[in-house]
Design a protein around this nucleic acid. Structure first.
Lengths: 219, 219
DNA sequence: TAGATTGTTAATCGATTAACAATC
DNA sequence: TAGATTGTTAATCGATTAACAATC
């Protein structure tokens, strides 16, 4: 049954909570490294980030790293282990579709490359926008996407169009062979079973923040 | 113990998963309403968004709404119930700090207002940026923040500065009486126990997407 | 050695899913 | 009435936390 398949596929099982935390640890580890801290321990990180130390130990063990009792983990090895586990090997080329203000902001977002995503081209339907450069990234007409995707073996698409244009842009990405879509458009995309959609809704974060604010007022 | 207190306070207990989903349902319900669907049922929404129907029923019950067996929920009542539950009453005024490309993108982000946030002013330290307008929002020097926050009773801050400027900007927001900070800067902010920080890290989403992509290739 | 930290196993907690009765 | 859907209670599942042994 196609529908059931779809649900199954959408939920490729990965330990989301741990992965989310690992990316937070990683950010801290970069600064520790720059700070010449050669060893970091779980209680160390925990104190800095206000996390639970045993949870950190458990998360880190996912990457297969071995730490030294008393000392902690070698900072360089730990960074390498997390980067490997999260596939941040810098070869993940991505297209950005929708060169509006959010798209431009993402192209400029700091360190996105060290987090495994390299934006190699941007696309737009608006002829006003195409033919220009945004921080060394070319903005091309969408018609060039399928051919370029195949040539450059691009598997990742970042969707920053309006909600109205999003589904059509998605269809084109799928036709071009894109396997994973990082979606910022506030709409539920329809994709084939084997395409991954990562929704980044601004709204859900707003909702959670407002709810916490309300809860904090009541106590 | 201050540290323990901090941990406790950071985790004001709200059903995060349900809230996140409710905001997704809401977005769909707006389109259903515009489409003149006067009644929607859980299996209805489930099919459209690829969710589990019983989970939807459970989530919706959080808002206190009563549905009709066989028919479902009145669309207007349901929208109202979710908006009430999530405090989207449109009176949540917010300051935006850091008028760079991401800040501008957020000011232009569609429907943010219907999701409970109204950006009433933007701030920047760069004199090049202050004194201008971004889509009807004034960009002011940060020095004006404390006084204006008190006058307008602003409790929410949106932080879109660089990582380097983020902590200082945060301190100023806290001094100004901001109670909740929606943080886009890739850094762990230090705040007093009673201030809520909602981190929106781009990186964690990248990490999860890459991990899913890898997992899907292995099956 | 003593003490701090890792690493593993067990207990708890919360969220999701399943089952089914109530009801329009 | 029959059937679809709500709504509630129970079972399952996964994630977090606690406990403690191993080790440097």
């Amino acid at each position: 049954m196609a529908d059931k398949n779809n649900i199954a596929k959408t939920k490729v099982k990965v330990p989301e909570h741990s992965i989310r935390r690992l990316s937070v640890y990683l950010r801290y580890l970069y600064s520790a490294r720059d700070n010449s801290d050669f060893y970091v321990s779980a209680p160390n990180i925990a104190k800095e980030l206000n996390f639970d130390p045993t949870q950190i130990v458990k998360d880190l063990s996912l990457t297969g790293i071995k730490g030294k009792p008393r000392a902690g983990y070698n900072t360089f090895e730990l960074i390498q282990a997390i980067e490997d586990y999260l596939n941040f090997d810098k070869s993940n080329r991505a297209f950005l579709v929708g060169a509006g203000s959010l798209g431009s902001a993402l192209i400029s977002y700091p360190q996105l490359e060290s987090f495994g995503i390299k934006i190699v081209a941007a696309f737009d339907i608006d002829p006003e926008k195409t033919g220009k450069l945004i921080k060394r990234v070319n903005v091309l007409p969408v018609s060039q996407m399928p051919e370029l995707a195949k040539r450059l073996k691009v598997e990742i698409g970042i969707l920053t169009t309006t909600a109205e244009a999003a589904q059509q842009a998605t269809n084109l990405m799928v036709e071009s062979g894109i396997r994973a879509i990082w979606n910022f458009a506030p709409i539920n995309l329809k994709v084939p079973d084997d395409v991954i959609v990562q929704n980044t809704s601004m709204y859900s974060n707003v909702a959670i923040m407002l709810k916490k604010l309300q809860a904090s007022k009541q106590s």
